[in-house]
Amino acid sequence: MSQASNSAPYDMQIKLLMIGDSGVGKTCLLLRYANDSFSPTFITTIGIDFKIKNVDVEGTRIKLQIWDTAGQERFRTITTSYFRGAQGILLVYDVTDRRSFESIRNWISQIQQHADVHVNKILVGNKCDMLDEKVVSTEEGQKLASEFGIPFFECSAKNDIHVESSFMHIAKAVKDRLKADGQGGPSAKTGLNLKPNQSGGKDKKCC
């Protein structure tokens, strides 16, 4: 099982993190992307979960390590300790829930506080298939995204709309950035990308 994924050949490893309020569909997006499966009632994520997906982006074999976090506010102190070391962050909100959209600003300030400075970000509005219940318009989402200068996608994990393209987009963005920095490559595996608390050191042990 896990050994197999370890030994799989790849040129670059990228750590992605999915954040957003509770119930916006982070787990659903991840499982649609990684397993191509969907259920409206996946159990609530407790703590942190992760999945591996190997992709090919413009001839570079990339191993995506995608971390899925619990969304409830009081777990934020725990979630944020995994921000460091992430190379790409997917900010997810629910187009049928304005509150989840409004807390995106809060999440962004969390990123600014806890994540690496150059981390790539992407804004994702999930559940865009539910047209009748949609309360956050595409324009609003677009506007917020351009305010922070990040790409924006409206997805549906249920109907498999734009799920793959948003993950590929951020994977490509991270790959390009790392290539430009002269990082990446198989050697990067030793020490650069894996660790959630690498620079945190000892004081990071508060779960």
Partner: peptide, 18 residues
């Protein structure tokens, strides 16, 4: 209310395939 409602709907839900 909002959070509880969301979580209750997902309780007794499905396990992710992996």
């Amino acid at each position: 209310n909002n959070v509880i409602h969301r979580d209750v709907l997902r309780s007794f839900g499905n396990l992710p395939p992996h």
